[in-house]
Nucleic acid binder design. Structure first.
Lengths: 168, 168
DNA sequence: AATAACTTTCAATTTATTTTGAAAGTTTAA
DNA sequence: TTAAACTTTCAAAATAAATTGAAAGTTATT
């Protein structure tokens, strides 16, 4: 396989994956492009490379910065802005999980909390089933948080981290 | 808040969450409805309750069964099929992760494996950046698998599981 | 203060996904 | 074997999401 073919395939693949894991396809493609770029790229270069419009490039880059996946860099003597991706994929994954927790899980949790204040007889079968479901979901979020914390702590542990590198 | 309002809000909320975490909105809504139903429901009841078409109900239920989130149950003396949701949310979460790994991550991994067979000079900056990205991604998938295994093992540990229940 | 270089916005369009519902298919019971 | 009860299919329609690009906005330079 030639480099350009591999590059396109990588961008395409990362785009597909991204769109199913919470960031939009174009966001993931721009991220993929930056990920395999040795140097920073300008908005101009990104739009040319991926054949997307100026507006799309601009909004996508801004979104990626909001998500903490891409950083802006200024070059001395240049008016243009240049962009660089976070290349540590584990950091990328953690960042995505963190953002999605904030954007998607937390609002749900507050709705669930409300739902527990439901009027009526607590011994009613229907009420009980609803309260059970809500309680169960809340406990799972707690478990997931705990598991995630453990995974992150585990990662921060230098020894284990070193062990992982042996398998790379 | 009255029961019916709470019920609708729950279905709506679960639907929104589902659609951002890999199962479609209607799938999540049907799942939510079954989740808070003390008894099994027929396709007919589901379509009436959620005001969706027969075709949509049928396909959605089939999808949910494919995902292992809903089971079919037959009642003696009834021609109709009845459905029951998996109510252990931790199992639901594990099941979704497992399915999505199979459906979305595994195909990506095999593409990445291909990409490593790229022609040309390995010392070329561009090649190196691409190979680095691919390698890095593969190692993160390994880490995530490991962390997930740990989380699941942790959950299966009765003692820890009991501790969790204290916080419920 | 005028111009050039660049970034941002957003209404209109395009593309992708979901839903419908009538028709076809299947199974059971008489 | 026929009819009734039920399930599945899928092309068309509806809805939702992403993308474009020209115009407006901003900032730096002369």
């Amino acid at each position: 396989m030639k480099y350009n073919e591999a590059k396109d395939k990588f961008i395409q693949t990362w785009g597909t994956l991204g769109s199913s894991w919470g960031i939009s396809r174009t966001m993931a493609q721009v991220h993929a492009l930056l990920l395999i770029s040795a140097d920073t790229l300008s908005a101009e270069e990104i739009m040319e490379d991926l054949k997307i419009s100026r507006g799309n490039a601009n909004m996508t880059i801004r979104d990626l910065m909001d998500w903490g996946l891409v950083y802006k860099e200024l070059k001395a003597g240049e008016r243009k802005e240049f962009f660089r991706a976070e290349k540590d994929i584990w950091k990328v994954a953690k960042q995505i999980i963190k953002e999605r927790r904030k954007r998607e899980i937390e609002p749900v949790l507050s709705v669930l909390e409300e739902l527990k204040q439901i009027d009526g007889n607590k011994n009613d079968k229907k009420h009980k089933a609803l309260i059970d479901a809500v309680t169960n979901i809340e406990s799972v979020v707690d478990k997931a948080d705990f598991a995630l914390d453990r995974a992150i702590k585990l990662d921060e542990n230098a020894l284990v981290s070193a062990l992982f590198k042996l398998f790379k």
